[in-house]
């Protein structure tokens, strides 16, 4: 029976991932801030699947706590899904360093610090899968969200290097790039439906990517083409665009 650790477990995507793996009889570790909110999810997954589910307090922003967090896990995971992220308020962050630092810390430093701990352990045992949920926003910096984007860009580069380093140890690293995710199902779509994935869809993609050992996955394939175009616009033109 596999053990799955989900970091940032209070998002809808994370919960959908837990549902899918629990239904495949995996044990689930849900790690997040104020993790007690997930008590109903824990009960539900246990009752339905007869697996073990644990709730672990974890704060992505508190990088100094990460090694300790990982050390105290009684059962070490076979798969780690790093799904936490913080979009933040871009405009506020331009003038408010605290907000800016928070965006950079959670999306980049926090992910690196916990995955460093995971990677060291996996490498020693020569097994494991790491999934990092990054973002298409990291593919090219745009004026509307380049703080978040640059942190995700760093995270994408980190995952790529990690995959390269761990390959010889038989450890697989997956980079997931969702486009827009519809997390407010009823609230009406403010994003174009064609470009917006449902949390369940993202979760299904993550499982498939792990099973098929995919490297970099765009949840909706159309995003690969959109970003290909965006990445190829010459900088001299790009800097004039309102993106």
């Amino acid at each position: 029976m596999k053990n799955i650790l989900i970091l940032g477990a209070t998002s809808e995507v994370a919960i959908a991932v837990a549902d899918l793996w629990a239904a495949r009889s995996c044990n689930i570790m849900l790690a997040a801030r104020n993790v007690n909110r997930l008590e109903p999810v824990k009960k539900d997954l246990t009752i339905r699947n007869g697996i073990s589910v644990s709730l672990l307090e974890f704060d992505a922003e508190k990088t100094e706590s990460h090694q300790g967090f990982y050390n105290q896990l009684q059962v070490k995971p076979d798969v780690v899904v790093c799904v936490f992220g913080y979009l933040g308020d871009h405009d506020l962050a331009l003038s408010d360093w605290q907000e800016c630092a928070r965006i950079l810390t959670i999306n980049y430093l926090g992910a690196v610090s916990i995955l460093n701990a995971v990677a060291t352990d996996f490498e020693k045992n020569k097994r494991g899968v790491i999934v990092g949920v990054s973002s298409v926003a990291g593919d090219r910096g745009r004026q509307s969200n380049y703080l978040y984007g640059s942190a995700k860009s760093g995270f994408t580069a980190y995952l790529s290097g990690l995959r390269n380093r761990l390959f010889k140890s038989g450890i697989h690293v997956v980079t997931i790039k969702p486009g827009f995710i519809n997390t407010r199902m009823l609230a009406g779509l403010s994003t174009p439906a064609m470009l917006t994935a449902q949390p369940k869809q993202v979760a299904a993609k993550i499982l498939k990517a792990v099973n098929k050992k995919k490297n970099v996955v765009y949840v909706l394939p159309v995003w690969r083409w959109i970003m290909l175009i965006i990445k190829n616009i010459p900088e001299a033109i790009f800097k004039r665009l309102k993106l």
Partner: peptide, 22 residues
């Protein structure tokens, strides 16, 4: 306020046939 995302089973007694859910 939609309740649709609060949809978890909290308890189930299979012998007595009692379920508690959100």
């Amino acid at each position: 306020v939609s309740s649709l995302k609060l949809n978890r089973i909290l308890q189930f007694d299979e012998n007595a046939g009692v379920i508690r859910c959100q």
